[in-house]
Write a protein that binds this DNA or RNA. Structure first.
Lengths: 195, 195
DNA sequence: GTCTATAGGTGGATAGAC
DNA sequence: GTCTATCCACCTATAGAC
């Protein structure tokens, strides 16, 4: 039962640094050397924890995915109102952007064709998870008259993810987080959700 | 007056290949070697036309920008109806995606922090141009009762660009162009534009 | 688990012949 | 304008000592 509880062992710290690098620079624009310098170890040491960059990528998305799922579960627990849940969902994106990062999987979506196959699969899975959660929130909110929209919830969920990911991309390259907020606000307004 | 009229000299062919590589792989995931192989010349030859990768990047965006501006001018000439203009605008994106490419500047937006400064500036300018054109179309369409929307045209223009760029990113990584079409259709529907 | 040392490859870029 | 040859920095990855 000697399970590590600290959560800040070397593997985790490597993932923290790599995650930040991918979220800012992309999968093809960071190296083991970058991580080694940030962590003050040698490149060789990193290979003990993550034998290849492909494996590192897999673990990176796996961790991001489970953190994201935990955040969604937390939202579900904190409120049963669809409007509030949508706002909280968008706040996750907003917080990432405020930290001058892109969504990890949004970034990997841009690098998509160059990614190792197992990473590709995980990126797709991440977005599917997002869309399923959003679809559920939308349907429930519609049934309880908390929000209103026309068309399928599924299509709306995909629309939201597209708009948010695109807004992050544009906001970051214009160094203007306001661009993101405006898009989020409009998305909410379309569901009859005000400030 | 010996201006080249062919438009398919070596420089142009290099740009064609580089453009395709950036639109599929990104700025940091292609090399002079990739272009050299595709063009069947040596890497050294490429440096005669484009001394550095940074310069190549600049010329790439410059050409993309002017092609895009020409396309927008063509749209303006072909119709004075805002609904049709918006549809034509989205068709540009759709065509790029159908060719299994991302928008060049959408891709560069993801690579943004790693780009040479002159390329960054050009990417920003590209999006500003898009937004200005869209704003004009929206305002004119609203004035002539061809389309309807609430809020500022400026904000709407940014929303459109964000949603389309995000939709391209997601559609490509899901190898499903339908994802893009659904987003485009919804955007149009929100302006009261049907099929 | 981290180190030194190194392999084998590729990156962008240059010199100088043709 | 394109070539051969080459430079040097950097890349991912491995072997083996500590």
């Amino acid at each position: 039962m000697s399970t590590t509880l600290t959560g800040t062992d070397t593997s985790d710290r490597i993932l923290d640094i790599a995650e930040h690098l991918v979220q800012t620079r992309g999968f093809n624009a960071f190296s083991y050397a970058d991580i080694a310098i940030a962590l003050k170890v040698t490149k060789a040491s990193l290979h003990y924890h993550f034998p290849t960059k492909a494996k590192l990528g897999e673990r990176l998305v796996d961790r991001y995915q489970s953190t994201f799922l935990a955040a969604l579960a937390s939202i579900d627990r904190s409120s049963d109102n669809a409007a509030l849940r949508l706002k909280a969902y968008m706040a996750i994106y907003s917080d990432v952007l405020e930290d001058e990062r892109m969504c990890l999987c949004g970034m990997l979506a841009a690098d998509y064709v160059t990614l190792p196959e197992p990473v590709k699969d995980r990126v797709q899975y991440f977005f599917e998870t997002n869309e399923i959660w959003l679809t559920t929130v939308l349907l429930q909110g519609q049934a309880q008259d908390q929000i209103s929209f026309t068309g399928s919830a599924d299509e709306r969920a995909r629309f939201i993810v597209s708009a948010l990911e695109g807004a992050m991309l544009l906001a970051r390259s214009h160094e203007d987080t306001n661009r993101f907020r405006m898009v989020a606000t409009r998305l909410l307004a379309d569901f009859g959700i005000g400030e």
